[in-house]
Design a protein around this nucleic acid. Structure first.
Length: 472
RNA sequence: CGCGGGAUGGAGGAGUGGUACCUCGGGAGGCUCAUAACCUCCAGACUCCGGUUCGAAUCCGGAUCCCGCAACCA
């Protein structure tokens, strides 16, 4: 038994939950549930990232008090727990008191290490965006978002983080082969470090941006949003006290993130940890993106598919199934309503749903009493190896190969005929099918918790369940 | 020539030198226990151009297209 810590990135609360985040949190949930079933002590965290300029701006646009605004969105994300049947142990909001304290504490430690310094920063500033622009971002010398406004040169004194101090330490961290999954993203990170690390600004003048964590010992500055946000991975554990020691120091840690996060999670955050003398994250797993109809989901294209639309149409378990099996764990995947319908019908309705009905009906009709609870053997290595290697789709492929084999076996052995000529033989066969179905039910515990429960219960009580995965 | 990844039947995936495999979808049969389900069989593919090799989806070079790092958003 091992202590295991797993977390997602924190979604930024300026929009409704994205299906890509649903994918991320489901992957994390699958791992968390699987590890628990294997007897580990698991801490699974998620939450919301609530500070920063964009949120303040959005709240103002909508004429809302910013705290009210983030409260509203935090609720939208918390509701995912029920909609997707998530097993997270914590939900950390970066506006939580203990998080703010932790963010300030890690700031102080980095500062004590000499990694934070004040510097005058001169750059082109777009008033429309309220953000500094890089030379490379300019289009005809103007801000691409606000081509009618001239960028103004502004000088601001900010705090900087000595990222450059970790030019040698980060490659050492990245040497470990499983520090980043998939491995080719690790190469991407190593290359990035090789190209040279530049210190970056980690604060803003409070006058310009009030919605953030105050910089310790300097009332005129607040932290730049993701310096504060990254700290959530340990503030959620109560760092520097609480369960931090148990799960982070003495446990194995895994972060799940989107493929665009490599720099933030595997470099910047790891440098912050090194600076504060805190153990690095053991592993970061980067998932791919979901496109819809071949294009990036966007409101203007009108191809957005929200997690709640999925759960409304297919239900919780089916949504989990669709995202975990039919979306590739690390590569980009495309989904459309047509494909989703097809996957749902072929595998859930005609697959596990029909097989369950088929067997439990036979049992209900021909068995006089329920079977004994089947003795469980260890999970097949095809399944556990796939999960441990983050190949969630292949793990489920294996379960579905068992479903197919059982369907075939019933067709071949014709128990419905056997039972007419040799009752005892027929009953033996049916009891064997029930046991196999039970094993399949057990294998589905981490992915389809509800359906798994229904299947196991039906087997043990010798009753046919109604409408496990109904037709659309 | 900024860095990195990718292109396999209609769709999604596997396959790092030796008869191209799996799932869905399509077509034809079979079965009747089941949610018009299930089983069997069939058709159909390695982006393009070169090279290495007895032999290339796989290795090398080049081209084209796609994606991330890198402008509402995961």
């Amino acid at each position: 038994m091992t202590n295991k810590y797993i977390t997602t990135t924190l979604p930024y609360v300026n929009a409704d939950p994205h299906v890509g985040f649903a994918l991320e949190i489901l992957q994390a949930d699958l791992l968390a549930r699987h590890w628990r079933l294997q007897g580990n002590d698991v801490f699974f965290s998620t939450g919301t990232d609530e500070h920063g300029q964009k949120i303040l701006q959005k709240a103002e646009e909508e004429g809302k008090d910013v705290q009210e605004y983030v409260d509203h969105f935090a609720e939208q994300f918390k509701k995912l727990k029920e909609a997707l049947n998530l097993s997270n142990d914590a939900f950390i909001r970066t506006t939580d008191e203990n998080h703010i304290k932790a963010a300030q504490e890690i700031w102080k430690r980095c500062e004590a290490k000499g990694d934070i310094y004040k510097k005058k920063y001169k750059g082109l500033y777009c008033v429309g965006d309220e953000a500094f622009l890089k030379e490379s971002e300019l289009v005809d010398g103007k801000c691409p978002n606000h081509p009618t406004m001239d960028p103004v040169e502004i000088e601001e004194e900010n705090y900087f983080f000595r990222f450059s101090n970790y030019q040698d330490a980060l490659p050492k961290y990245l040497e470990r082969e499983d520090s980043i999954i998939p491995d080719w993203r690790r190469k991407e990170a190593i290359e990035f470090v090789k190209n040279g690390l530049e210190d970056f600004s980690i604060s803003r003048e409070k006058e310009r941006l009030s919605w953030g964590v105050p910089v310790p010992g300097d009332d005129s500055q607040v932290m730049y949003v993701w310096f504060d946000a990254l700290t959530n991975y340990i503030s959620t554990l109560g760092w520097p006290e609480g369960d931090f020691k148990k799960y982070w120091e003495e446990g194995e840690t895994l972060q799940v993130a989107g493929k665009d996060q490599v720099r933030f999670q595997s470099l910047i955050w790891q440098a912050m940890l090194l600076s504060a003398d805190i153990k690095n994250t053991d592993q970061v797993f980067y998932h791919g993106f979901i496109t819809s109809g071949g294009a990036k989901m966007s409101k203007s294209v009108g191809n957005v598919i929200s997690p709640y639309e999925l759960t409304d149409k297919y239900g919780t378990d089916a949504t989990r199934y669709l995202l975990l099996r039919h979306v590739h764990p690390v590569d980009d995947s495309d989904i459309t309503w047509e494909k989703l319908d097809e996957w749902y019908t072929a595998n859930l309705v005609n697959g596990i749903g029909n097989l369950t009905a088929r067997i439990t009906k036979l049992a209900e009709t021909h068995l006089e009493s329920p079977i004994e609870t089947p003795e469980l053997t260890p999970m097949p290595s095809e399944y556990t190896d796939a999960i441990n290697n983050f190949k969630f789709n292949e793990a489920l492929d294996h379960v579905w190969s068992l479903i197919g084999a059982l369907d075939k076996r019933i067709t071949d052995e014709e128990p419905f005929k056997v039972v007419k000529t040799d009752v005892e033989k027929g009953r033996e066969l049916i009891a064997e099918y029930l046991e196999e179905l039970y094993v399949i039910g057990v294998l589905l515990e981490a992915t389809l918790p509800e359906a798994s429960g229904v299947i196991k219960k039906s087997v043990l009580e010798n009753t046919k369940p109604e409408g496990l995965f109904a037709r659309l």
